[in-house]
Structures are given as C-alpha cells and as structure tokens.
Design a binder for these strands. Structure first.
Length: 422
DNA sequence: TCTGGGGTCCTAGGACCC
DNA sequence: TCTGGGGTCCTAGGACCC
C-alpha cells in the first residue's frame, strides 16, 4: 500500500502559519519577478483565478476582490517542507520525498483497512499540530491511485482529509467522474488526444485496450493505465538518486540586449550551478548554455542553445564560467531583446569516481578544490554573494522584483517573528 | 511595459559499426 | 537492372511532473 501525503495549498499555508490574518482570505503567491500565480488559497480558487495567471493582467481583479498578493519566499517554504518531512519520519515507514509539498510512504500490507484509516488520521493530526500546515492523505495499492485518493480527499470534505482505497475497485465510483487530465501522468497533449477519441473520464481510460494505449500514449501511458487497474508499476524510491542535471536560469525583469550584461548573468548562472554541484559532492562534464527572447514576442523570436563537453569532469567555477561565455558568444545574436537565459550541467558523477584524462593538461585539482571550498564556506558563513567572481559583476546589481515578500521567519535571526505583548 | 524555475524519462532519428 | 540487415550510441525534442 502507498500513502501520498500532500500539503494543502502549500505556499499559501506556509504564509498563513506566520500571518494568521491571511486565514479565510483569498491569497495568491507569485513566481519569481512577481510574474504569474503559482499558488492559490481555496478562496482564491473559488474566485476563478487560474494557476499561471499573469499578475499584470489580474492586478485590477486582485484589488477588486481584496486578494492578498505575495511574492514567493522559497527559503521559508523549503524550511517548512523539511519540518513536515521530519514529523512524518517519526512514524518510521519507508519514505520518499517526492516534491517540496508531497511525500509517499510505503505501508506494510499486513495492516488492516481500519488500522490504515486510523494511521492516516493520526499522521494528519500530528503534522497539522506540529507544523501548522494542513495536509491531505490518499492511501491505495498504487501510487497513481493514491494520488487520486488524495485529490478526492482534498476536494470532498466528508472524507476529513483522508481517503483509502482498499483495492482498485474501490476507486471506480470516483474514476467515473474524474476527468482524464486530473490523473497523474496525463498532461495537456494526452488529454487532447483522448478527448478526440471520446475518452473523457478516468474510468474510460482504465478500460481502454493495452495495445492501443501502448501505441498512442507510449510506455508511460500504459503504466498509468495499469496503475489505475491496481497493478503497481511506479516503485518506491527511498534513496534520492544522484541528480542527472543541475540548472540555473531565470527570466529578466527587463529584456537584455547588450552582450556584456548577458555575459555577466551567464557567469552568475554558471557560478550557481557550480556551487550546487559541489554541495552534492559531484562533478560534471557537460555544460549547456541557452538564451531566448520572450516567447510572447512572436515577430522577433530567437532562441538558441549550445552544449560543450569538458575534457575532464570538473566542479571548478572559473572553468564553467569560461566555457559558458565561450558558448554564449557562439549563440548570441545582435539586435534581439533577450528575456531569459540559463546554464545547465549534466553528465554528473560523484567526486569520488573522478577519472583523469590522459591527454588533457592536468591542473592541480587539490588547489582548485581548496579555492572553491573556501569560497563556498565564505558564502555560507557570511551570506550568499559575499564573495563572487568579478565577471558576474554587473548582474549583481540587478535583483529580482519581489514587491511583497514575507520575512525568512525560520532561517534568519534578523527576520524572526516578533510578538508584542501589551 | 509586464507571462516561473527545476527536474525526469522516453522516443525518433542520425551517425557509426560490422 | 541491381544497392543488406542488425546492432549501438548519442542527441534533440517532446511530454510530463511540481
């Protein structure tokens, strides 16, 4: 049996823990640069604000309906997420952290239905009491069905936040009314394809023939169908695997045309991926650089990317910056207004597996490691960006737009919650 | 004027091999 | 007149997730 524990409206719930005035009110949290809506309270959903709504378009709507609009505070959400996981860990079942607001548990088959139901309620109560974050729990024989159970537990208040499918058959009455696009693994493309074939609800998909599904929705689609039938295809992953890629990218507040400025951003992205790579005690041997103009600007759209292979795996920021700049000059074209750029590392291996290249000149790896270690330490001890490479210079003056960001209540002494007693 | 960022996996097709 | 068949590896692009 799998349990999926999912935090309700997670980002909004984190904000509400520290600002109770937000309770019962419509609240939205915006993406970087306050670009679009990435989290909504139930009240905001009820007003019809869609996920991904552009903030500038909705501004009049927000003020008309007194919606609380917050910038995202990822430091706070990340820390709250860890707290939720810590509480769930106390129950001592094999645990998989699936995303910032979701955890799968593998529950023993030996537990009776009553015991499972009761366990669900206990977990819910403890997490809510200890962290202040409301959660929903779905329990079922497969992960996909646990996702369905969770979704319904969240939507229908009669389940009190916990729904348990003893077997796939128990899910049928719900699958009959669940639109296919609400199933985990069915995205917009599959949804459109299925609609064209008159398959609109989960139950119809569940009953479609294997060979037809395999042909049109490929192996992933087939697994989804089997999971709906109660055949577990997606396994429990307790150990997080080593990352396959690390990306740093962002949209710019204002479009950039000058190469020099773009270069300094690319350098900053390269430095950031390098730092994250070292934190994972890993090295990479492939670096990818990409730039693009606004995807909404259809008359002069330009996007390009380039990959460069390193002679030998590395985690040395100056080398990443050098290569990233080299890549940039190959894809940069004058006369465009760039709105987005990024750097990605891949072909990642643990530092302990490093192989030396017989033919590449051997820089002293110990020296490099020492230098990077010192830099990472300074940045950890004295705050990020205390120390950075000169080439990132210009980008440092250009922050993100974050008009209404809450304090880092739980991770920064200067921003800790203050309580006044009169 | 303004539309997120960070991931994974699968597949098709090209280059290459014998 | 006629031009194989069976592999592997790599990469780009698509679809999906939160």
């Amino acid at each position: 049996m799998f349990a999926l524990i999912d935090c309700n409206n997670f980002f909004v719930s984190c904000e509400r823990v520290f600002n109770p005035l937000l309770k019962g009110k419509p609240v939205v949290v915006l993406s970087n640069n306050d670009g679009c809506v990435i989290a909504r309270s139930n009240e905001a959903k009820a007003l019809g604000i869609p996920m991904g709504a552009a903030a500038f378009e909705y501004e009049p709507f927000f003020s008309r309906h007194k919606v609380f609009v917050l910038s995202s505070n990822y430091i706070l959400y990340g820390d709250m997420s860890e707290r939720v996981v810590e509480v769930i860990e106390e129950f001592d079942f094999p645990l998989e952290v699936y995303s910032i607001d979701e955890v799968f548990l593998k529950l023993p088959e030996a537990l009776s239905p009553d015991a499972l139901q009761e366990l669900g309620l206990r977990i819910k109560e403890k997490v809510e009491k200890w962290t202040g974050i409301p959660i929903s729990i779905g329990i079922a024989p497969t992960k996909t069905l646990a996702k369905v159970a969770n979704k319904i537990a969240k939507k229908e208040s009669r389940h009190k936040g916990v729904l348990f499918f003893e077997s796939a058959a128990f899910a049928d009455p719900y699958l009959a009314h669940l639109p296919v696009k609400e199933i985990w693994g069915i995205g917009p493309a599959s949804d459109e394809f299925l609609a064209g074939r008159n398959i609109r609800f989960a139950k119809e998909l569940k009953e479609a023939p294997d060979s037809w599904i395999r042909k049109h929705l490929k192996i992933c689609g087939l697994h989804t169908v089997w999971e709906l039938q109660g055949i577990s295809c997606i396994s429990h992953e307790e150990q997080p695997a080593l990352r396959k890629s690390i990306v740093s990218s962002s949209s710019f507040k204002e479009a950039i045309s000058e190469k020099a400025l773009l270069e300094s951003f690319i350098a900053k992205f390269a430095a950031k991926v390098g730092q994250r790579l070292r934190r994972e005690k890993a090295m990479a041997s492939y670096i990818h650089v990409f730039i693009a103009t606004s995807r909404f600007d259809t008359n002069s759209y330009y996007a390009n990317s380039i990959g460069i292979r390193l002679l030998q795996s590395s985690s040395y920021t100056p080398e990443f910056i050098r290569l990233a700049k080299e890549g940039l000059s190959k894809i940069y074209k004058e006369g465009f207004r760039y709105k987005r750029a990024g750097v990605m590392l891949s072909d990642i291996i643990p530092t302990s597996h490093l192989q030396f290249n017989l033919f590449s000149p051997a820089p002293d790896p110990m020296k490099r490691e020492k230098l990077m270690g010192l830099m990472d330490y300074v940045n950890m001890r004295y705050g990020k960006d205390s120390l950075y490479l000169a080439t990132e210079g210009e980008s440092q003056n250009k922050g993100y737009l974050r008009k209404n960001c809450s304090p880092r209540f739980t991770t920064c002494w200067n921003e800790i919650l203050k309580i006044k007693i009169n």
